[in-house]
Amino acid sequence: MASDMELRSVAAEAAGLAGRSDRRLQHDIDHAMAIVDDYPAVFTAWETRRITRDHVEVIVKAGCVVPAEVRPAFEEAAIEICERDIAVRVREPLRALAQRMHPREFTERHRDAAAGRCVRVLPGADGMSDLIATLPTVIAAGMLDRLTQMGQSVKDARAAGTDAAGAAFGDAAAPGQPEEPDARTMDQLRADALADLVLGGAPVVDPTYGTDGPGPLGAIRARVQVVVTADTLTGTDHGPAGAVGAGLVDADTARELAGQTASWDRLFIDPVTRTPAEIDTYRSTASMRRLLQARDQHCRFPGCRRAAIRCEIDHTIDHALGGHTHIYNLAHLCQRHHSMKQFTDWKVRQLGGGLLEWTSPGGRIYREDVPIPAVCFTPEPDPPPGARTGHLVDEPPPF
């Protein structure tokens, strides 16, 4: 069985040849290995055209909850179901089959599954993204119900001409102006309420404080690294900015955030010489980190777009081997690719000007160009009126 680092290295090599993300390619490799190794009967049925590729995908997805000891029986039963109908109509029967054949109680399995709860962002089109939370069903349903009630209350208050919803969800009317009926749809109201609650609210119980009262968690501000060219910032053009690691931001929003944010660090860098800075210690200075964040913007492994503020600063030539803490010997790498550089035969060197050249274990060379010089800032979205609970004053902005 290949080690995790070996699989990472192989995926990175294949991704370089295919021009794809190594994370995505490793996922595809893992998925293919799962079909061949974990579902041999299904793979054979697909080869002999008893079932289709779509059937295979449905079986593997439904069977992810089935333990290995009952998987062969599940395979045979699933193949029989798939032979009788098309893939889109066998999803529910296969899910029911998997639940019925599982030897453990559903309650026990739910307890384990709840440990995998998470939140993630999927960048979309036109400056929008999907925020996805994987939660226990009862909590997710409760959240949707509460957001719906909030949205309906705002609509009712506006329709009644009261001031109760005047400041709701960042849509307040000017003082002295009459309230108008809220034209937002229920979906829009729910989305606005969720954004306000997450950005401006505080947890009901704050274990960092020790009581049920407001504590330090409520004072943590949201941080987003935004990259925008000087021309867009000054209004010379209206090209989109970028929320590093998340997606595109329209020019109007970028300029508004740049004008309002309290955490603003401007970096003016010579686009030709990109003046280097160096210190004698291992750790880079705050100004060097800001310069590197502006230069790199993301992990510098080919194809990786993990935001620089979520990465580690790596000495291209190890400091312990004489590498200097110098702008041209430093680069941002995410934890995955930092570890791969350290523990596999992937090599990297800097060619000057921020250009990195990677050499794979197979001897192939990939160059990661330095991103376009840009101005970066970290906005802290304001909470709705009355929701501010204070600021953490002892933590400097990430950039």
Rank of each mutant, 00 (worst) to 15 (best):
P276H: 06
G151T: 00
A320T: 07
P181Q: 07
A320D: 09
W346D: 04
T107H: 10
T281H: 05
A254L: 02
A202G: 11
Y209S: 14
D130T: 12
I29G: 02
P276A: 06
V244H: 08
L355D: 11
T229Q: 10
V90N: 09
T253D: 14
H315L: 05
H102I: 10
R146P: 01
I365V: 14
G354D: 05
L321D: 15
A320W: 04
A167K: 12
T232N: 07
A41D: 09
R306L: 11
I309S: 12
V272C: 03
G363Q: 02
M143C: 07
L197N: 02
Q26D: 07
I313Q: 09
I132P: 02
V272I: 09
T134L: 12
D270Y: 09
C311K: 12
Q260C: 14
P181G: 04
A174D: 15
P181M: 04
W346P: 08
L17P: 01
G259W: 00
D182A: 00
K347C: 01
I29N: 04
I35D: 12
A62D: 09
R266N: 10
R117E: 00
H391I: 07
D187V: 14
L131S: 03
C311M: 06
A98T: 05
H110I: 13
M5W: 05
A172T: 02
V10P: 00
Q260V: 10
T316W: 08
R120W: 02
G170H: 12
R158L: 07
L199T: 13
A11R: 06
D192H: 10
V370R: 12
A98L: 00
Q350K: 10
P181H: 07
A243D: 08
L356V: 10
T234E: 13
V205T: 12
G176W: 06
G390L: 04
L356K: 12
A87N: 04
V138L: 13
A73E: 09
V249Q: 01
I29L: 14
A62N: 11
R111A: 15
P67Y: 03
V244C: 15
I309D: 14
P385Q: 02
V348S: 02
A254I: 01
G210K: 10
L135W: 01
T232Q: 04
A77Q: 13
L122S: 08
G259N: 11
S284N: 08
Q342W: 01
L94N: 06
P175S: 01
T234A: 14
W358C: 08
L356Y: 10
P271F: 11
D22M: 12
A254T: 02
Q297M: 08
E256G: 14
A167P: 11
P214I: 12
S129G: 02
I132V: 13
T162F: 05
R24T: 15
R53D: 11
L94A: 07
L291M: 05
